[in-house]
Design a protein around this nucleic acid. Structure first.
Lengths: 291, 291
DNA sequence: GCTATTGACTGACTTGTGTCAGGGAAATTT
DNA sequence: AAATTTCCCTGACACAAGTCAGTCAATAGC
């Protein structure tokens, strides 16, 4: 009886089902029905527009209205008209509501910390969880334009450099690669995109503009747990679209044969190989694409 | 913003929560309430005693009764008195019930197969899922006595030999290790235990008896995804208990320094190192324990 | 300005889920 | 043989969750 893939998958399903159930149970321990708790949490996570919350939780408009009224009666939430459309409403937590939200957060955090603490190899467990979460949540990965200097972007870039250092036989010193002024990757000259799955950054790509019609694609990175999910294609398609709206007509990029999947990606996306266009010591492949 | 462990864990939680929710939704697609579907599945999985089902699903006796009556009214289940205790009842699926159960199974299998098929590295995904499932389900690991010749046991032994082959510099040929007659690992001479998590075998250990007061512990194996969870201690404690009930007073075992965690385990469990007691070519450490 | 649409709210309703207090039959204890 | 316990069933009830039709106010389109 070699365990077959489907039964291994389903064993996983049963394990997480009972885990999810247990978390729901501990939520109920705070004396509030689950639906109400879910709305409270959605608001706490920063979703203020009622329509957005309803959409996120998949609730009927009537039910949503009643749950909100319940939270208002408890003094946890206040609602008011949307500043830009007085038909719509926004909900915000009162200080009491913030405290309740924090209590729910603490319950979840505690469960997570307990499970991690009980495991002999928490880092391996987390890596496995990242992989599973990326696989299950691949349809919920969103792309966001970010300032390349903010904390999240710097995390992505740091991971990118670490990956290069591992891949290049000679190692990699980010100082040596011409680090563009970050402002070249900010509109209107350029752009910097980060891919998020449920708040976790999984990839990035930069468009380094020069003010003219030619720009460079830089810093394409995909987290190991998210590779193979087609994320690099999505990032490339989106950054090309941004380039078009910025009036750029020619895109260039360089890469290294130590990254064969990158070379294959660019070829597959219709880039044509061209001669070296800079004297950066690391790249050995150069591509161009006309928009 | 380096993602911290707890937020990575919670991202995983959200991903599987929506996965579980989606599976529930597809179950509801068969037009039966979730509670009813769960009972049907529990019966289909081979749980026939009503009390056992109730316990497994955590249901109130009244609710359970009503759900069963509903399934009977649909013609999917028949109930009758328990053969050994006429107060208790057992439930079995009718042919229609079997068909419905199969339809639910097919839904789950389909979801699993789809997700696996969409992933670029299904084997890596499954390994990650095994690891996560073992971590979350560590309290639900059960030990069962098995015939060492059955399919499940042979799977464990095969994994055990494969592990030795990887670990030993010289490789490992199971033919060379004196393979005891399997009957030596069956009561009343010995025993063979397999650890299961939700149907998946995660470890094993054998007690090879000789008919006398001395017996040998053999074939202690733990699946990679379940290491560090204390399973080896549980298996050893249980096999020692079996040895006691079989009247065995002295236990021996041999192992190899290429398996340092095994050597450490035996020392930690109160075994004392002794001189070589066989001429098997592989082991270089020998232990004994008086019960 | 008039009309149609959108977003939220309300009341009435259904269904699912879970609890509780008994009741009857079988098993066990005294 | 009587009393007690165990197991399941039943009816009554409560509440959560979700649906639906209708209402009202704000907005958008003409």
């Amino acid at each position: 009886m070699t365990p077959d893939p489907v039964s291994r998958f389903r064993r996983f399903s049963r394990a997480v089902t009972s885990e999810v159930g247990a978390l729901d149970q501990s939520f109920l321990g705070r004396g509030r029905p689950l639906g109400t708790a879910r709305v409270l949490n959605a608001i706490g996570q920063g979703r203020t527009e009622v329509a957005a919350i309803r959409d996120y939780l998949g609730l009927d408009s009537g039910l949503m209205s009643r749950l909100l009224r319940g939270l208002e009666a408890e003094g946890l939430v206040t609602t008011g008209p949307h500043p830009e459309d007085a038909r719509a409403r926004v909900a915000v937590l009162t200080p009491d509501g913030e405290a309740e939200f924090a209590a729910y957060e603490a319950l979840s955090d505690q469960r997570a910390a307990d499970t991690l603490a009980r495991h002999p190899r928490p880092e391996a467990l987390l890596a496995a969880m990242d992989l599973v979460a990326s696989a299950l949540g691949r349809d919920r990965i969103t792309l966001e334009e970010r300032d390349p200097r903010d904390e999240t972007s710097r995390y992505c870039l740091q991971e990118y450099y670490a990956e290069l250092a591992r891949r290049f036989e000679t190692g990699f010193d980010p100082q040596l690669s011409r680090d563009p002024e970050a402002t070249d990757m900010i509109a209107p000259r350029g752009a910097f995109l980060v891919a998020f799955s449920d708040g976790l950054p999984l990839g990035c790509v930069g468009l380094k503009g020069s003010g003219g019609p030619v720009a460079e694609i830089k810093r394409l990175w995909i987290a190991p747990s998210a590779r193979g999910l087609g994320l690099s294609k999505r990032l490339m398609a989106e950054i090309e679209a941004r380039a078009r709206t910025l009036g750029i007509t020619t895109l260039r990029l360089d890469t290294n044969s130590a990254l064969p999947e990158a070379v294959a990606l660019y070829r597959g996306l219709g880039w044509t190989e061209i001669d070296r266009f800079n004297d950066d010591p690391y790249p050995d492949h150069f591509f161009e694409k006309h928009l």
